[in-house]
């Protein structure tokens, strides 16, 4: 009969220090790669809308006319897709996750301050209407 096989581990844990990370009294563990939430550098965004197109959960909305970059935090799956596709690297993935909220409003609106340098405007990307397919 082999009982008490667990006793060694149990007693060792009992005597030793608990493995607990005492969050929130100590900050949670993050690594440089951790995906927390997307941030935008409003000064360099060119409103190209790539992030919006490539967002798998349609959390980002870029409005060229109003010059807004809106993200719905309650939709964002922090997949890093937008960061990867951004041609001007104005998006970054912060390691801090977005906070819990008590109302259903995850919308965060950023006003793009980027001013186009004087250059002839380029045509927009082609496959605009594919989404309805």
């Amino acid at each position: 009969m082999a009982f008490f096989e667990m006793a060694k581990t149990a007693i060792r844990s009992f005597v030793g220090k608990p493995a607990t990370r005492r969050y929130p009294f100590v900050p949670g563990k993050v690594t440089p790669l951790s995906r927390g939430h997307v941030t935008i550098d409003v000064s360099s965004c060119i409103s190209c809308g790539m992030c919006m197109k490539k967002c798998p959960s349609e959390a980002i909305c870029v409005n060229k006319e109003e010059k807004t970059w809106i993200i719905d935090r309650l939709r964002c799956i922090v997949c890093n897709s937008c960061v990867e596709v951004c041609p001007v690297h104005c998006l970054t993935m912060d390691t801090v996750y977005s906070p819990a909220v008590t109302t259903h409003s995850g919308l965060e609106v950023f006003y793009i301050t980027y001013v186009k340098p004087e250059r002839p405007p380029k045509a927009d990307s082609v496959d605009e209407n594919k989404e309805q397919a």
Binding site: M52, E58, I60, C61, N63, I70, D72, L107
Partner: peptide, 8 residues
């Protein structure tokens, strides 16, 4: 699906 995101 919802419409274009601007409608939200």
């Amino acid at each position: 699906g919802e419409g274009p995101c601007q409608d939200r």
